[in-house]
Design a protein around this nucleic acid. Structure first.
Lengths: 204, 204
DNA sequence: CGACTTCTGGATCGAGTAGTTCAGATGTCA
DNA sequence: TGACATCTGAACTACTCGATCCAGAAGTCG
């Protein structure tokens, strides 16, 4: 917005990107202002607060950048053009691929960066918890849609089957953080989908 | 060991238990010395350091207490008296039950308390990572044992199937921390085991 | 050029961090 | 009882935390 005045001497977008990676890797409380300012090119405190407002505001911005980019891998869960089973499988495979791709931290920022920590971060934990809840509900909708279109029998335990995929999706973040490769994760996903297929071929 | 001298005025075991719960809930860096001393009955810094040495030493002690008690739920993975499939199912069900039982934090301390954080906690992260790795290897052994005894066909993707159960086991901690009930987790486990059964009934 | 706007470096703040020190209180044991 | 071992309360250290302030540098625009 400012038309006049001394221009900022650092690239704000690049700074947010590096902050996103730091929070993703170490969690909100695991990153200090010093680290943030250093990776942003050694800017001063004054510059930091003028540009971002506070550490918490920066985290919120970093998280929304994450959701708008890397986090899109679970969009498949809501892709009505795909069959319900494919929505889940695509989301799993894209998540596994993204979370093990070099160039950024492993695992998922929503799952890892604000899950545990002191009570002072309750508000931020709520942000990521809401995202996880949204995915949870989308997975349930995939199962109910499959029952409605006859892919899965009507007596399927909707919540239980959805929780299985939900839990596995969350677990992928921890596997990736522990160093598991994308190939192995893809094999694991193939096996997870067998739980769905077992129900799909069950006698009605 | 001390035979003489002024006796300690607080219950050391009870103090370790409350510390375990704090670390379990908030993670190593999410707990402050003030919190620890307060929940231990308001003991002083001097008493704390005389009894435990340091915050890190207390965490190590708390973790070993956890492993020797709550953490035993995954012992089933190594129970040679059980069929391989039951080893995995028992470990999953006992974990889900324990992690959702009231009276202590939800989820698993090994999975949650030292997974992310600043670089200063690398050593502690290694402790829990080693435990996860041990479970990982035990799950692989369950799969290979099932292949050897003919329960699963020889062409099963061992690592992929094991990673699926491993990932789901880890995910249970996050589901429990998000408030999922033990009943739903048990339903999810029933569905996860279908992936195994799908392979077990496959034509050779 | 000169008025105006914005950003920057550096000092600084108060609170909180883990950890230390020591005199004195409180116990055990011969 | 008295020598001794241990623990406790409170003050304190050295440091890091996130955040603020201000003087001056470095731009834009009429």
């Amino acid at each position: 917005m400012p038309r006049t005045g001394r221009p900022r001497s650092f690239d704000r977008d690049a700074a947010v990107t590096s902050a996103t990676h730091l929070f993703w890797q170490h969690g909100y409380e695991g990153v200090s202002l010093d680290q943030l300012r250093t990776t942003m090119g050694g800017i001063s405190s004054a510059s930091f607060y003028a540009a971002f407002g506070s550490k918490e505001a920066l985290y919120r911005e970093a998280l929304s950048v994450y959701l708008a980019t890397y986090g899109r891998v679970t969009d498949a869960l809501r892709d009505q053009t795909l069959p319900p089973r494919d929505r889940i499988e695509h989301a799993l495979r894209r998540s596994a691929m993204m979370q093990t791709t070099p160039g950024h931290p492993t695992g998922c920022m929503v799952t890892l960066s604000a899950t545990i920590g002191s009570d002072q971060t309750t508000a931020l934990k709520g942000l990521t918890a809401a995202e996880r809840q949204a995915n949870r509900e989308a997975i349930v909708l995939c199962v109910t849609a499959a029952i409605e279109n006859g892919t899965l029998p009507a007596n399927v335990d909707t919540v239980g089957l959805a929780a299985m995929f939900d839990g596995f999706l969350l677990g992928i973040s921890l596997l990736a953080r522990d160093g598991m490769t994308g190939d192995i994760l893809n094999s694991a996903i193939t096996n997870a989908m067998r739980a769905w297929d077992m129900l799909a071929i069950a006698p009605r």
